[in-house]
């Protein structure tokens, strides 16, 4: 049960692992925007080279990435088929009722497939190489400007870290409650729908009650130790922006420039 992974973090010592979560988040969000610049095979090829380079520099095996894409494969194929079957234009290879398989359709299908898979791969690369708690810190740092708008950024990030911290404990507790009910003869997932639902209430009741107690204890402890919401807090984990972070953002800039250049060179706009 403890093995059930929260997030998909893979420990490692790669270039990607050592990047600051802020630069990773920024670069990933930016990549999703840059992808929409691509409009022909040259630009897609460049994006693929970049994506493969990122995956390679994360030092996580490719099969792990493929596992990340697999659950979404049907959705991707469905959209690709829609594109292929219903887009006209260019040389038409097959026409049957409303269905046409055309040059443009195939091309669009291929592009959309690439776009999908690349976005998924890049966002997977970030979650594979960053601990959830570091991602939280990164998000907190990036949202800091919102403080000026009276958004309680610090409280939000405190809550996020508490949530992440308690997920394993709560998993254990759920397991315990279920075992306790099993020992009393409850069978999960058996019987009619209503019977199945009835077996749930004796799980949720103790789980919620103990979570409420836990929250109360923790709030008391925090106040005793001097926590006051809204006060400035210092952090145990410090983020440090290094040369490689600046370098990564420069690489993103370089990617953008080459994309724009390739676009204008090959298609003229």
């Amino acid at each position: 049960m403890n093995k059930l992974i929260l997030g998909r973090y893979f420990p490692g010592e790669s270039w990607m692992h050592h990047l600051d979560p802020r630069s990773k988040l920024l670069a990933a969000a930016y990549f999703i925007l840059v992808i929409f610049l691509a409009n022909n095979w040259q630009t897609y090829l460049l994006l693929w080279v970049f994506t493969i380079f990122v995956l390679y520099s994360s030092n996580v095996s490719f099969s792990v990435y493929l596992r990340g894409v697999r659950p979404l494969l049907w959705l991707i194929l469905f959209t690709v088929f829609l594109q292929v079957l219903f887009t006209g234009g260019g040389v038409i290879y097959l026409e049957w009722g409303p269905i046409t398989i055309s040059e443009f359709g195939l091309l669009n299908g291929a592009y959309i497939f690439c776009r999908f898979v690349m976005i998924i791969l890049i966002s997977t690369a970030v979650t594979l190489t960053t601990k959830p708690i570091d991602l939280t810190d990164g998000i907190n740092a990036l949202l800091r400007p919102l403080r000026k708008l009276k958004v309680p950024v610090d409280e939000l990030s405190l809550m996020l870290s508490i949530s992440l911290r308690f997920v394993p404990n709560l998993l254990d507790e759920t397991q315990k409650v279920m075992d306790a009910q099993r020992a009393r003869g409850t069978e999960f997932g058996a019987g009619s729908l209503l019977q199945q639902m009835k077996t749930l209430v004796p799980i949720f009741l103790p789980l919620f009650a103990s979570s409420l107690n836990r929250a109360e204890d923790m709030a008391n402890v925090m106040e005793v130790r001097g926590y006051q919401s809204g006060e400035k807090r210092s952090t145990f984990r410090q983020l440090s922006w290094g040369i490689r972070d600046t370098a990564s953002l420069l690489i993103m800039l370089l990617l953008t420039i080459s994309m724009i250049w390739l676009r204008t060179e090959t298609t003229g706009y």
């Binding site: 809550m159 997920v167 709560l170 109360e216 919401s229």
Partner: peptide, 18 residues
């Protein structure tokens, strides 16, 4: 002693984890 605000924050966090 327990200000409601802290309890509120913690409880919301723990239930989101749940």
């Amino acid at each position: 002693m327990n200000s409601k605000r802290t309890l509120f924050l913690i409880e919301v966090a723990i239930f989101a984890a749940l």
